[in-house]
């Protein structure tokens, strides 16, 4: 799985950079983002033919480092949401704020409701997901 491969690769770089921190904090893997890190996303916008959204993972504090941020666009259907592809941010361990934009063709869809879905991981293996409120857009 891509995220696992990414995590293994990024994890090595992250571990080298932060081994002392890992020992000090002993943050559990596959848990919440470490304290001091957060994830947010902007409601989508359109230029009339494409819908754009941005997710941003941010960290503040000595031991808090974001590893990657991904985002994708989702469109409301009758009883569910359809998803565009994930836009994966390259892992860049130890950065404090990482934004990733995503887009999806909306040409000819008229007025529909869209949202941005963001995902972020810290260097300790914590992963989180966020959704914006649905935004009505006319394409």
């Amino acid at each position: 799985m891509r995220s696992l491969a990414r995590r293994l690769g990024a994890g090595l770089a992250g571990a080298l950079l932060s081994l002392p921190l890992l020992v000090a904090t002993a943050a559990p893997s596959e848990a919440a983002l470490i304290s001091g890190c957060s994830l947010s996303a902007t409601r989508p916008f359109t230029d009339g033919v494409t819908t754009f959204g941005t997710a941003t993972g941010s960290c503040t504090g000595g031991n808090a480092y974001m590893d990657y941020t991904n985002s994708r666009i989702q469109r409301q259907e009758t009883i569910s949401w359809s998803s565009g592809p994930w836009y994966y941010g390259n892992p860049v361990p130890a950065q404090v704020s990482i934004s990733k934009q995503s887009q999806l063709n909306c040409n000819g869809t008229g007025t529909r409701t869209w949202r941005t879905n963001g995902q972020a991981g810290d260097i300790y293996g914590g992963t989180a997901t966020v959704y914006t409120t649905g935004q009505s857009l006319t394409c």
């Binding site: 799985m1 995220s3 696992l4 596959e30 848990a31 919440a32 983002l33 957060s38 994830l39 947010s40 996303a41 995902q119 914590g126 992963t127 989180a128 997901t129 966020v130 959704y131 914006t132 409120t133």
Partner: peptide, 9 residues
């Protein structure tokens, strides 16, 4: 307003 959801692998 937003909130994040912890997402296991």
């Amino acid at each position: 307003l937003q909130f994040s959801i912890d997402t296991p692998e």
